[in-house]
Design a protein around this nucleic acid. Structure first.
Lengths: 239, 239, 239, 239
DNA sequence: TATGAATGAGATTTCATTCAT
DNA sequence: AATGAATGAAATCTCATTCAT
């Protein structure tokens, strides 16, 4: 008695559906005479706890599609294909396209924020923290190469998208507030003038963002050196 | 007695109704005594020769739509409506949507480039030129409020659009090369180290772009002050 | 005891209502004594697995439209209407208009080729095979009245259509090669001179095609007689 | 005093229309002081007897377009461009697109008919006339390479075009009737059986047409030989 | 949970024809 | 007789979303 894949031609044109139903399994066996017998169909019970996994699977596929096709040509069908799921199931896990898009952005944001925070928290001295911050934000395009391309797509959309706009604003605010907290230590230690804080934090954010976008657009040959100079530029500024 | 080109504004496409000689254009010249003489008439038909006028009209309408709906929801139908024309006529003046989009971008670029060049060329001393450049690029969002929003939309498209990508690259290259030419004067006057040139030009471009995008995204309350600090940041850097 | 594929016609997409086990397909086999046994059921959903059915349905509708409106005024919208489907669903089953058109042609070709081959294969003697071939190709317009009208439409397109051109060429080549294989028997039996083969096969193809097109164009009153004479013409030629 | 081309910049944006009006001419001269003076505009009177010439010009351009783009992508704008005329003027000489298309076909037909008639009329004896006819119709694709491609386009259209259909029928009828007149001589000289006449004439027409179409479709390597055999086939038939 | 078929609105593009002059 | 701008209908194609099962 041996299990065998079902020969295609043995099935009427509708039987192949069986194999498309992902959570069912035909159970076959050979008879004593070598004939194939279908013993039954196991319709597997839906897996428990699949929800977060599926969501993740879809978000990842959506990220891929965003990078490959851009916001303008991003389609649910492509996401489904890329996740090897049906289009319909996307709507089980996400309210609609917009919802999916927002989740993708949220993921990207929290990833990047985490990276920066971790880099800073290794240090205690103000100067070291500041340097670590500068290096971390300058390194985002290297650590997380797709982040700025995704961000770019969303920023372009943001003026026309009520949900995306505040998300982006919040992301930059978080990151900038975090920097201001670091700078506050400098102020307390009389290294920095209090007024420098808001301006400096804005300039750092802008510069980091500008550099990353330039890198996306033009093939820069001396990226590494530019990043180092970016750090130096602001170290010089606070002296 | 000198031949004089007719002032453009004297001949809106509908003015032909005003002439006694129907559907024609008077050809005039000044006499020795300053009197105007009608030398003859050019036969014209009002439905002919609309090309330059219409192209401009459509490009303007397209810019409006771009700002209003963004790249993602930019439609030819909207452009036509906004220009109070039929959709078909757009294709009389532009090969396709892509072509129109490219023309819009080209216009925006040349406008901005011109503004910066003009600002710099008022000065002769290196330090003044450099300052003028910094101020001019920092002021682009103020002088030309739509520029960065349009740019943003195109940048997001650029990785998926063969024609737009090189246009943007060229624009930034032009602007950066122009800055390097200014910096070269600083090098010649021993104010700057030669190696500073490429790095500095990149950092300035990034910072300007980053600031402008931030301004697009967040309602900054101290924009003016930030711009001043932007200038000071780089003045400090070259000291 | 042998497994038997279910006959297609037993499962129109709507028959699922008839089964007691809802939305499923019975899997049957013959017993040693010829009795039918229900071995199990395949779970299916009526909205799934429509592909082969719909493709056929659409191809048929497309054929109808082709005949009714011709290549020049063949529109997807008409096909959809004729198949009582939405326009969108056509693009679910076919990549684009061109793809659909090609599938229609392929079907028509294989049908006709099959008819001719079957007619010939009933015979064994060379003369009989040759006669059967001549009669079969002459009878195509009668057996398959739409074939030449469809062909005509495609041929007119072929110089401007990269995909259709080789399909048509291949079709005629197949049919002509098949005739050459028949003629080869005549050569082996010393009934034909070897050199006659290629020329004769071409002339037969041309004549058949020419006759069919004439029939399309003019209302011939003596079609039957013409076909007989067509056969006689070439029988005489090989004597 | 010298004639000079008008400097572009001397004209308001609408004056260039002057040069677009094909039948008007500015008349210029230099003054004693070197200034350009426009002396007047000659609006040339419409040329008399241009009608047939223009019609011919347009028909030729239409033929070119038909060959280049086929019936399916044949557009008035292309015809106008190919004839270096405006789209509007086409409608001065032809009622509409359909009318133009019909004229193109008529021209092609009369050309071909003429060729065949001339070839036959050089001879007097029946056999020679018959041979000349066969050779002439077989040679049409060589003498008039575009004829069958144009015909193909029209035939495919004919079932859906009330005006084209009878034109084609008439063309083939003419040519076939002409052959029957020749054959009648053979009947009178007791070379042919009277019943052969209609069948033979049809078969000849079909064969010629079929051969020509095959030649259009497939790259035949032995066209010349095929044509000779075509002649021989029917010479043999009447023996 | 999952499938993928189906819908229908909307976008781009083409083009015969008209029209004012 | 000639221009080419303008229209608007129609065609192709895309895609978010729904739906029966």
């Amino acid at each position: 008695m041996r299990l065998q894949p079902l020969a295609n031609q043995a099935f009427s044109p509708f039987t192949y559906n069986l194999f498309h139903v992902k959570h069912s399994l035909p159970f076959l066996c050979y008879t004593f005479y070598g004939h194939i017998l279908l013993m039954g169909v196991f319709v597997m019970s839906p897996k428990v706890g699949m929800e977060p996994l599926r969501r993740q699977q879809i978000i990842l596929a959506a990220k891929d599609c965003m990078l490959q096709y851009g916001f303008g040509h991003f389609s649910i069908k492509d996401v489904a294909e890329s996740a090897t799921l049906s289009t319909g199931v996307i709507y089980h896990y996400f309210k609609n396209k917009q919802d999916l898009l927002v989740q993708v952005l949220k993921e990207s944001f929290s990833e990047t924020e985490e990276t920066v925070r971790e880099a800073v928290e290794k240090h205690t001295a103000f100067e070291e923290k500041f340097k670590a911050y500068l290096e971390a934000v300058a390194d985002v395009p290297k650590q997380n190469p797709d982040f700025y391309l995704i961000l770019l797509n969303y920023i372009a959309q943001s003026p026309y998208n009520e949900e995306v706009q505040p998300l982006i604003t919040k992301f930059f605010d978080h990151l900038r507030t975090f920097l201001e907290e670091i700078l506050e230590e400098g102020v307390e230690q009389d290294i920095l003038h209090p007024e420098t804080k808001p301006v400096l934090s804005h300039l750092v954010m802008s510069q980091a963002m500008g550099l990353a976008f330039q890198e996306q657009l033009l093939p820069l040959d001396n990226v590494e050196y530019l990043r180092e100079e970016f750090v130096r530029l602001f170290q010089k500024y606070i002296e």
